[in-house]
């Protein structure tokens, strides 16, 4: 088995695809980090990320397959699911063969895997547009900690740039320590410095209390249905919801 290892960036993944065509040997698997258990039958190749090669692949996907395929690949990449990199690779191989009709092969394994991973990412990012909660800190900064299952910070930040364009805010993925910081001019993705990571959130914000009161009084008591509530709003997201504290 030939394994490619890349650094976990999207460019790295695209470089791996490039190498699979022009390098020494096409891989059986593409992986993000080294397996601790190595088999003597495996041949490991480290891929050095090269932005030029990556952009060639990027352009090729756009032109030879479709823009949708590019979107699917990027979203599937953000899912960080097991083996997804290998499936993306197979999807692209298949795609370069079939052209833009690749997304019609809804029943073939490699297409199905990439589509379902991409869909999971899109579903969660849409849900998060609603479930993200900004806490107003004493300095007037709006700070939104959350821990999504998939790496969606880059996907959702644009929405808030458009929407909350006249306030300073930070969206902080506490699981990956990745933050989108907005200063009313531009939004940057970065990791938060240590001292900012442990914000004391005990602000006495009266609107948080008002929101909790509203949340309770809008419910019709004759129709209580916790199962439906949990189906729509999985409990794993409750940790950062003001109304569920």
């Amino acid at each position: 088995m030939v394994n490619y290892y890349y650094d976990g960036t999207f460019d790295g993944l695209l470089t791996s695809v490039y190498e699979s065509y022009y390098g020494i040997e096409p891989p059986d698997k593409i992986l993000r980090c080294k397996n601790l258990q190595q088999s003597i039958l495996d041949k490991d190749i480290d891929i050095v990320t090269d932005s030029e090669k990556a952009s060639k692949v990027y352009e090729a996907i756009h032109k030879k397959i479709s823009y949708d395929a590019l979107r699917n690949v990027y979203h599937a990449y953000l899912s960080e699911l097991d083996e997804i990199d290998t499936y993306i690779y197979q999807y692209l191989r298949f795609g370069f063969k079939k052209g833009k009709s690749v997304d019609l092969y809804l029943t073939s394994e490699e297409v199905l895997k990439v589509h379902s991973a991409a869909k999971k990412v899109r579903t969660e990012s849409h849900l998060m547009l609603g479930l993200l909660r900004f806490r107003k800190l004493n300095g007037g900064l709006y700070y939104a900690p959350y821990s999504p299952v998939y790496n969606i910070t880059a996907l959702i930040s644009d929405h808030f740039v458009r929407r909350l364009s006249d306030q300073f805010w930070i969206i902080h993925d506490t699981k990956r320590n990745l933050a989108a910081v907005y200063n009313m001019v531009e939004c940057v993705l970065t990791d938060l410095p240590e001292e900012l990571q442990h914000q004391s959130l005990n602000t006495d914000d009266c609107f948080e209390d008002l929101w909790k009161k509203y949340f309770d009084s809008i419910c019709i008591k004759d129709r209580i249905n916790p199962k439906l509530q949990k189906r729509n709003m999985p409990a794993r997201y409750w940790k950062y919801l003001v109304e569920k504290q």
Partner: peptide
Amino acid sequence: NTKGGLGNATSCGICHSWADDGRCISLLK
């Protein structure tokens, strides 16, 4: 959104929470 303004609308709509009766909360009703 307008320049210096606040907010915009999304054509697909966004739910922001679900009350204990399982109905979605999207607007301040």
